[in-house]
Design a protein around this nucleic acid. Structure first.
Length: 414
RNA sequence: GCGGGUGUAGCUCAGUUGGUUAGAGCGCCAGAUUGUGAUUCUGGAUGUCGUCGGUUCGAAUCCGAUCACUCGCCCCA
């Protein structure tokens, strides 16, 4: 309705906020590169099937939380709600399954039709890493360590706790799921309305319920541990051992579950208490079943994604950008000279800003506002002498410098 | 999708039991040396009181709807 208001759940990212985003992305990219994860990206929209098939048409996610529409060519299109499905699709489309294992880093906007809250938007941004074609516990350790390193490097490691769980292998999961359904069916009357619905759709999620009655029942619910196969238990033990070797602290959270069948083994989330209900800052897990489900070869994979907005809320103020030199011409001769001087200085690597209007006072005010380090004043007086006035804006000291020496004399102000 | 809170200047907010000209700080603009910023001093402008409708002699204030933000639930790929 009010056209001058951004659409619900979207926001402008103005320079101050953008610097925070940039800091998150740049830090993550650098550290991911150290682990051998190469940056790539996929389209912001895909055929709807890419996302709906692995998730299931009947789920809330697909039926009411995706930005899905028909384009002018009558194709069913969906704005990507996550990175993983698109990346797996790209791996298959490009025949990259020849080159496993693949290690990717990506970042970009995601779209989910949800009710906005703090740190939760309809257009939001994620960083994402995927390790495709590696199925050993060591690869789980690597990808978690990568996440931990990034969080530490962003200075938020102290306020995030790594929660860890296993979803076992298919055999373990089916046995556990059956046991849960049996157990909760016997306690059906005590369950909340939401959980009775979950009983059909997604019994594991009951374990995660916030309803007080459900929590009481959960206390007696069967534990996954007793249903794990030896192989699954061994896998999890190796993951934990690896984390311990690397000194990465974690807390086992048996209620940390995933709803979809292609997930297995390791599930993890780095959680903070500083963001209210939207406390998960980075989450991921192993998805060995997805590649095959999407029509590719049967390749194991693991990955995680982290919300840039949430991380941006947690990090300290990023370092200020480099301070510019303010070019301040007075009069027509000065304007003409300023253009060529500014160009030459920029080619030489200086940051140079010019206001383009106002008298000297006004331009000095502008120079101050943009935190310029120095001002180069080009008036008729000094131009007649082939010189410019250079003012140190921190000390107020001011000297006249021959134009030929300008570059050298400005060097201390870079 | 469900429930609670909030919406007043560019920003952060104050506005008494409905009462006539709606305020503060910061910021912005102008001036205090017609070629010198940041400090200081003086002056100025801020505004459909989110929007629409209702109650009333009279609404920023009460009621309803709607939009947005926010807290929790649902969902969380």
């Amino acid at each position: 309705m009010p056209v001058l208001q951004p659409a619900r759940g979207t926001q402008d990212i103005l320079p101050d906020a953008m610097r925070r985003h940039r800091a998150v992305i740049d830090t993550a990219r650098d550290i991911a590169a150290r682990y051998g994860y190469a940056e790539m990206t996929t389209p912001m929209f895909e055929f709807t099937d890419v996302f709906s098939r692995p998730i299931g048409e009947a789920t809330d996610i697909v039926s009411k939380e995706m930005y899905t529409f028909k384009d002018r060519g009558d194709e069913e299109i969906t704005l990507r709600p996550e990175y993983t499905a698109g990346i797996v699709r790209a791996v298959i489309s490009n025949g990259l399954t020849q080159n496993l294992p693949l290690k990717f880093f990506a970042h970009g906007p995601m779209f989910r039709y949800e009710r906005p809250q703090k740190g939760r938007f309809r257009q939001f941004h994620q960083i994402d890493v995927e390790l495709i074609g590696a199925g050993t516990p060591e690869s789980d350790v690597e990808i978690i360590a990568l996440g931990a390193d990034i969080l530490a490097s962003l200075g938020v490691g102290q306020v995030c706790v790594l929660q860890l769980n296993t979803l076992g292998d298919t055999e373990s999961r089916q046995a556990y799921r059956a046991a849960l359904v049996d157990f909760f069916s016997a306690h059906r009357d005590g369950l909340s309305e939401d959980s009775r619905r979950r009983l059909e759709r997604n019994p594991l999620r009951i374990l995660d319920s916030k309803d007080p009655g459900d929590i009481r029942i959960n206390a007696d619910a069967p534990a996954f541990d007793t249903y794990l196969t030896d192989a699954a238990r061994d896998f999890f033990a190796k993951v934990r051992g690896g984390l311990e070797t690397l000194g990465i602290g974690y807390r086992i959270n048996p209620r940390l579950v995933r709803g979809l069948d292609y997930y297995c083994h390791t599930a993890f989330e780095f959680v903070t208490e500083q963001l209210g209900a939207q406390g998960t800052v980075l989450g991921g897990g192993r998805y060995d079943g997805l590649m095959k489900l999407m029509g590719g070869p049967d390749a194991p994979a693991i990955g995680w994604a982290a919300g840039i907005e949430r991380l941006a809320l947690l990090i300290a103020e990023p370092a200020s950008p480099s301070r510019p030199i303010a070019m301040i011409p007075l009069g027509e001769a000065g304007e003409a000279k300023a253009m060529t001087l500014a160009h030459a200085l920029r080619l030489a690597g200086f940051t140079v800003d010019q206001a383009y209007s106002g008298n000297l006072k006004r331009r000095m005010q502008r120079a101050n506002k943009i935190a310029a380090r120095a001002a180069v004043i080009l008036g008729d007086d000094e131009l007649a002498r082939g010189a410019a006035t250079v003012r140190d804006l921190d000390t107020g000291e001011q000297i006249e410098v021959p134009l030929a020496q300008l570059k050298d004399r400005l060097a201390p102000f870079r």
